[in-house]
Design a protein around this nucleic acid. Structure first.
Length: 415
DNA sequence: TCTGGGGTCCTAGGACCC
DNA sequence: TCTGGGGTCCTAGGACCC
């Protein structure tokens, strides 16, 4: 017996841009972009001109001369995204929030209360429109993946219900790039086999696919193509890593640039970790050179860390190792730090990891304790007066390419 | 006109242990 | 002495997503 279509995927349409158009009626029906130096989001009217997220502002203006840039109301995005997607909670406890503007819900256990999933989806769409003022598209299907494809097909402002009896017929006519996990590289590889539709993918022998994409990816794609995606809704997923990055334009690879940048990045990461009583064992840095080639370097410690000073020093040493291995590179265009292997941090961290290349990492007491006190003091001040009340100067990061703090905060996943 | 920021997952190879 | 196999952890890089 076939299960019914009870998974719902809800996706707010052109979310940031729709919020701006809701808040300011003069922007409705017009091509707008949130951002300035970089397009963070574009309205449907702007997308019609080819304007896309992550596009340099200048390029966007060239494509669409009437494009209106708006600075962005990031607090409103948070508030309205939550308000819209919390409506799902009224119909099921099984809600998996994917991002600020997207969520899955499983209605299997609550159809006796609220009726068929298609009716719930209509009710949710109506309520999001009436109570929040925003358009939202919804896909309903038997699996997460198909529901997600449904919401994409339904856009803008639509509903797409895929009943089990016609799911393969529906799916197989669509292009492969609508599948989760098929980006430009995979699409090009598949095209090399003559595969451009999901139906053609389904007809391709598993072995050829595996040779082309590896075992995990080909398994996943076949599960999607035959709609046997086994994933269940996961409530309350937490991040497995925390990171920060800064695009630098073109900067000399000197300590004067690298040290303050790494300190700022470590500060962002570590204050988030400490707020959750978390710490991480693995520190990874990423260095991007002038030609945009990037190199990563990582180290896994015996004990987890969350002190800003310690993470800064580790990152600095890793970056120096990268630069030492690439002596011809004199310019950096991006620095990033990520902390992973997260675990709960019990009590005071006394470790002082020095000498990553193999020297013993000894517990260092005095320096560790004073750093802990410095971090605690800073955390306390920020808790009272806000993040910007105190901190490490961000002078190095100012420039047209950088992105507002509010936008960064929205991208952070719950730790 | 050279491309933001925060994440996830997978692969391949090497080290190390049993 | 040689040979083999399996499992785990780590690192670097790639692809992808919002």
């Amino acid at each position: 017996m076939q299960a019914a279509a009870t998974i719902l995927h809800a996706d707010l349409d052109a979310f940031y841009a729709s919020v701006e158009q809701m808040l300011n009626p003069a922007l409705r029906g017009r091509p707008i972009a949130v951002g300035g130096g970089v397009v963070l989001a574009a309205s449907y009217e702007a997308k019609a001109f080819g304007v896309r997220g992550a596009m340099p502002g200048r390029e966007a203006r060239r494509l669409c001369p009437e494009l209106i840039f708006v600075p962005g109301h990031f607090d409103a995005y948070r508030r309205l995204g939550d308000a819209a997607l919390r409506i799902l909670d009224d119909y099921t406890p099984l809600v998996e929030r994917i991002s600020i503007d997207e969520a899955f819900a499983d209605l299997a256990g609550t159809t006796h209360l609220f009726g068929p999933p298609a009716a719930v989806a209509e009710a949710v769409r109506r309520r999001v429109r009436d109570e929040v003022g925003l358009p939202i598209s919804i896909g309903v299907a038997r699996t997460k993946h198909l529901a997600k494809i449904g919401s994409q097909v339904a856009k803008p402002d639509g509903l797409c219900v895929i009943e089990p009896a016609r799911e393969l017929q529906f799916l197989h006519a669509l292009p492969v790039e609508l599948m989760w996990g098929v980006g430009p590289a995979t699409r090009a590889r598949l095209a090399g086999l003559g595969v451009t539709t999901i139906g053609q993918l389904a007809a391709t022998p598993g072995q050829s696919l595996e040779k082309l994409l590896g075992s995990a990816a080909s398994e996943k794609l076949r599960a999607l193509a035959f709609n046997t995606d086994p994933r269940a809704i996961e409530v309350g997923r937490r991040a497995r890593s925390a990171g920060a990055q800064a695009a630098l334009g073109r900067r000399p690879a000197t300590a004067q640039v690298i040290r303050p940048t790494l300190r700022l990045l470590a500060d962002r990461i570590c204050s988030r970790l400490r707020a959750r009583q978390l710490a991480g064992r693995t520190v990874t840095v990423r260095v991007r050179f002038a030609d945009l080639r990037a190199v990563t370097h990582a180290v896994t410690l015996e004990a987890p860390v969350s002190a800003t000073g310690i993470v800064t020093e580790i990152a600095e040493e890793l970056v120096h190792q990268v630069l030492g291995a690439h002596p011809q590179e004199a310019v950096v265009s991006l620095l990033a730090i990520s902390v992973s292997h997260l675990g709960s941090q019990n009590g005071l961290q006394l470790e002082l990891p020095l000498g990553l290349a193999g020297e013993a990492r000894r517990p260092g007491s005095r320096a560790g304790a004073s750093r802990w006190r410095a971090d605690s003091a800073m955390d306390a001040i920020r808790q009272r007066f806000g993040w910007n009340a105190i901190g490490y100067g961000s002078v190095v990061l100012e420039g047209p390419g950088s992105v507002p703090d509010g936008f960064r905060a929205l991208a952070e996943k719950e730790l």
